[in-house]
Design a binder for these strands. Structure first.
Lengths: 143, 143
DNA sequence: CTTAGTGCAAAGTATTTGCAGTATG
DNA sequence: CATACTGCAAATACTTTGCACTAAG
């Protein structure tokens, strides 16, 4: 079993929530994908694979994963919220191409410094962040 | 007249669009606000002030402002798109409090370095970015 | 006058919620 | 068995679109 699932089960127990088949299925499939999935996309992936779940349950389960600290909600300029696995992932940011919509990842070496600035200048206790850099990817910038 | 309005008029002329009363009104009011306004909020502000515009026109005009390079669309975790004036604004990032929803601004000293990394590592030509740091503001973190 | 822009209301998306039935602790 | 969870459909929030009318060039 994925170690993340154990964390999820622990979180559910701790908060008095139930370990249901659907929550586990959504978590499994979500963690296996490792991409930037929207709720709707994950829902369709699961349907296509023959897993019977309701769309509302996918939404609810993803929110649970966020609450458990296993996923982060991210919003790209195109509208829908996308979710990304957090566990064991190094912090990274996103490059989004305005031409073709491609999404790339890039590590961010400045995070610590920014968190310190937020604390020093605003008394703000940062817990996470999200950085999107928009522009044109290698392929599109050559056209 | 605000210099931004001149830029807008120039952009409209260049692209064969018309300089309408509504576009000017929306632009004026938007630029005067200088905040992180959603379309709906701007619409209500204008109504309250007795300016007669349609909600759809506010949406359309804001998109025009983005196209003209005077505004940027930003998405915070709470759902609605918010717009921010670009002209003359130094680049800055946002601190969003997960407790009370407060939004603060903070300059970012690392931007150049990140843009260079994107170019060097992915051949990505960055044109803008958006960084949101979430956490708890000074007031909320003390409770 | 010709064409683009406006306002309204209807149609789309993305997401949440109410409720009756179902499964977990 | 008591209660939280699910699935569905209806509701909501945000944004876009079709269309007849108005106004800019």
């Amino acid at each position: 079993m994925r170690p993340e699932i154990e964390l999820l089960v622990g979180y559910l127990a701790k908060t008095g929530q139930k370990v249901t088949r659907q929550r586990l299925l959504v978590a499994e499939r979500f963690l296996a994908a490792e991409g930037h999935l929207s709720a709707e996309e994950l829902y369709h992936v699961m349907l296509d694979e023959g897993t019977k779940v309701g769309l509302a349950t996918v939404y609810r389960s993803l929110k649970t994963l966020v609450a458990a600290g296993l996923a982060q909600e991210r919003r790209f300029p195109d509208g829908a919220a996308r979710y990304e696995a957090v566990f064991g992932e190094p912090l990274h940011d996103h490059l989004v191409c305005t031409e073709c919509g491609a999404i790339m990842e890039m590590p961010n070496p400045c995070v610590d410094r920014l968190y310190q600035m937020a604390q020093a200048e605003h008394g703000f206790v940062a817990t996470s962040h999200r950085l999107v850099i928009t522009g044109r990817c290698a392929a599109c910038s050559q056209r």
